[in-house]
Amino acid sequence: MTIGLEHYLVLSAVLFCIGLYGALTKRNAVIILMCIELMLNSVNISLVAFSSYIVPRALTGQVFAIFVMVVAAAEVAVGLAIILAIYRRFTDVDANNINLMKW
């Protein structure tokens, strides 16, 4: 059985749903950020798979994956800075207790 596009897409869907479950249920803010990274990675897998199976000579999916990586790097830098600032202020990283901006 040869590996086709569907295999990569299903793997990407599985990783995305694991990351989604973790991001929805975890209380540690750092773990939530890690799960978001997992979801971004799974999207990258599907982009690269589309690129190499549907348009193998155009590479547009890989260019998109590079931009996703750029945004993920920026997001993790700002996110961890926010978590460290919250930790310094409240000495806590529990997402259940950080409800300062909750309406």
């Binding site: 975890k26 540690n28 750092v30 993790v76 978590i83 460290l84 930790y87 529990d94 259940n96």
Partner: peptide
């Protein structure tokens, strides 16, 4: 970066509990 953040915040919360 993530491991650095865990090292700096690890003593406040043991484990990774769920809501």
């Amino acid at each position: 970066l993530i491991i650095l953040a865990i090292m700096m915040t690890r003593e406040v919360q043991q484990g990774s509990p769920s809501n």
